[in-house]
Amino acid sequence: MSEASVLYDAPGPRAQRRNLLFAAVIVAVIIAMVGWVLWQFESKGQLTEAKWHPFLTANLWTTYVLPGAVGTLTAAAVSIVLALVLGLLLGMGRLSDSRPVRWACSVFVEFFRAVPVLIMMLFAYFLFALYDVFPSRQLALAGVITGLTLYNGAVIAEIVRAGVYALPRGQREAAVALGLRPGQTLRLILLPQAVTSMLPVLVSQMVVVLKDTAIGYQITFVEMVRQGTNIGSAYSNYIPALLVIAALMISLNFALSALATRLEARMRQSRRTPDPLPVNTGVQEDTPGTPAA
């Protein structure tokens, strides 16, 4: 059964002609819009060679783009690792048998999913500056990493919980029937399977982390977006700079997202790995206050 034929009929000749007409009209409209935008840019001097030429010079890339990319990738990598650790600990805490532990972890998780990342970054940044916790060169980086770690740690905790709940109930029952204690069951049976099934979701969470490093723009963290505006400052080519930076970031994030989807598809097909948690393509993050889906 072909996929298209489920929601709507396979097009007959008249429908195919109509589709072609649609295509032609829409393409014409798009060309008109793009043309208008380009004309506006031209009249504001955005298309002059002076504005675009700098991108061909090595200086621009080594002085601006490279540090920006290094900043973005460093912050993302460190945050992801720390968030994974934090998320695993918190997730296990929320699944623990001890009521106080569960409660404390729950409060922590709910709180850090409710507060915006920017607020956390601002707070961390000024806190570190006030108490001189980090040397000034790493101040912004520390602020970004703290904000991202706290938030994504909380999200990953929920993903871990969802992963454990998504396992067939029989797994836990069989472990209990064999005499394993709850802690052992969690550690030896449930978590290992859950972590594997969570792999695609975790990869797509990495895309979120990568994107959110751009929030560090507002605490003067040297990352791609800030470097884009710095390029714009230095060469007076704001719009071209932002466009180039956007293209770079979109490509990177798109590649990672595609990896997540491919990983999920392969895991579904393979019989050796447990069923992957569906990469929730619609949702960026969980809701505070709702139980894991």
Partner: peptide, 20 residues
């Protein structure tokens, strides 16, 4: 619900339309 590659289908004398 499924298309055919060749041949014809008539229902009560009317050829099965392709669309619309």
């Amino acid at each position: 619900l499924e298309t055919i590659d060749s041949g014809s289908i008539h229902i009560d004398g009317d050829l099965l339309p392709e669309e619309g």
